[in-house]
């Protein structure tokens, strides 16, 4: 069943609608509810495939469903349609306007309706796809303030990494922060890259979503085995590598690979002079979990993030 979560009129003959698909169990409803959300950033598309797969898998074994599944594939439909990260016409990052305000502007109103609809879910999963500049291995980001509640659920989602990060005031206006502070557990998934679909990652997360539904007691059907993620708790466990010079970045290491200290990640080249401007090396041994995707870099552009570890990561199933 398709439901409209929020609807507003645009100036010229168009209605903007945020819609969701609700799948209800045929029998044995436990009253549990999971919400799958994506498309807050209009240029992040990895979640599109996941929404489709989750719906297909559940509907093909509908008799095994014992709770409610709500799927919201497009929180920012205008952004998705116009290849725009933020909300077009407002020049606004939609993930900086929560919890919204029902008496506020059009965008604040939409945000508040979204929160109202999602609040009370037993779990909400907000799927992001990094941005157009960086590629990420499937990972969950958890604000340290909410780690006690979220870590136990995150382990079932079949991601490779759970990154517990420190709180920052600006993050208090995200969807996840707003929901978690209203006692609706919300996990933020980051995976892949903006403007693309990485099918392999989408399939991986789909299994995780089915597995976590099993743990919540709302799914009795098939769910693939899930991998045990690496967990990063401390701030100094993640090494950030920024470009020392402007240029064109060419990757030499592979994404997700284990790097020894001093190993090359890539080069910043100068196509005008035919020279290598800088060789980018890892300062520490660890797993290359974020890698630059968009080749043009300025001084300071993020090139890589490395989770410092003694040994390579082998996803144990």
């Amino acid at each position: 069943m398709i439901k409209t979560v929020a609807a507003v009129e645009l100036p010229v003959d168009e209605i903007l609608q945020i819609r969701k698909k609700r799948i209800e169990p045929k029998q044995g409803n436990t009253g549990k509810r999971i919400s799958i959300v994506t498309g807050i950033h209009g240029d992040e598309l990895e979640g599109q495939y996941v929404c489709h797969q989750v719906i297909r898998r559940i509907e093909s074994e509908i008799n095994n469903l014992t709770g409610i599944v709500d799927v919201y594939p497009a929180m920012n439909p205008l952004g998705i349609d116009s290849v725009t990260r933020g909300i077009p016409g407002f020049d606004l990052d939609m993930n900086r306007i929560f919890p919204g305000n029902s008496d506020g502007t059009m965008t604040e109103y939409i945000a508040s309706e979204i929160i109202r609809d999602l609040e009370g879910s037993d779990l909400c999963i907000d799927i992001h796809a990094s941005n157009i500049y960086l590629t990420e291995i499937p990972q969950i980001r958890i604000n340290e303030l909410h780690q006690d509640k979220l870590l136990s659920l995150a382990k079932y989602l079949n991601v490779d990494l759970v990154w517990i990060h420190s709180n920052a005031t600006v993050l208090e206006s995200t969807l996840a922060y707003s929901l978690n502070s209203r006692n609706t557990p919300t996990l933020v998934v980051e995976m892949g890259v903006g403007m693309r679909i990485t099918k392999e990652y989408g399939d991986q997360l789909t299994e995780g979503i089915l597995q976590v539904m099993k743990e919540l007691g709302m799914w009795k059907g098939a769910a693939g085995p899930v991998r045990r993620p690496m967990i990063s708790r401390a701030v100094d466990e993640v090494e950030f590598v920024n470009a020392p010079k402007a240029g064109i970045f060419v990757q030499t290491a592979s994404h997700g690979q284990y790097l020894h200290r001093g190993e090359e990640i890539g080069q910043i080249i100068d196509p005008l002079e035919g020279k290598v401007r800088a060789r980018i090396r890892s300062e520490a041994g660890g797993v290359l979990f974020t890698i630059r995707e968009y080749p043009v870099v300025d001084e300071g552009s993020l090139i890589a993030r490395i989770l410092k570890r003694e040994e390579p990561y082998v996803p144990a199933l």
Binding site: V8, E9, L10, P11, V12, G89, G104, T105, M106, E108, Y109
Partner: peptide, 8 residues
């Protein structure tokens, strides 16, 4: 010249 709804 064009306004969205609920706009200040």
């Amino acid at each position: 010249p064009l306004t969205y709804s609920s706009t200040a």
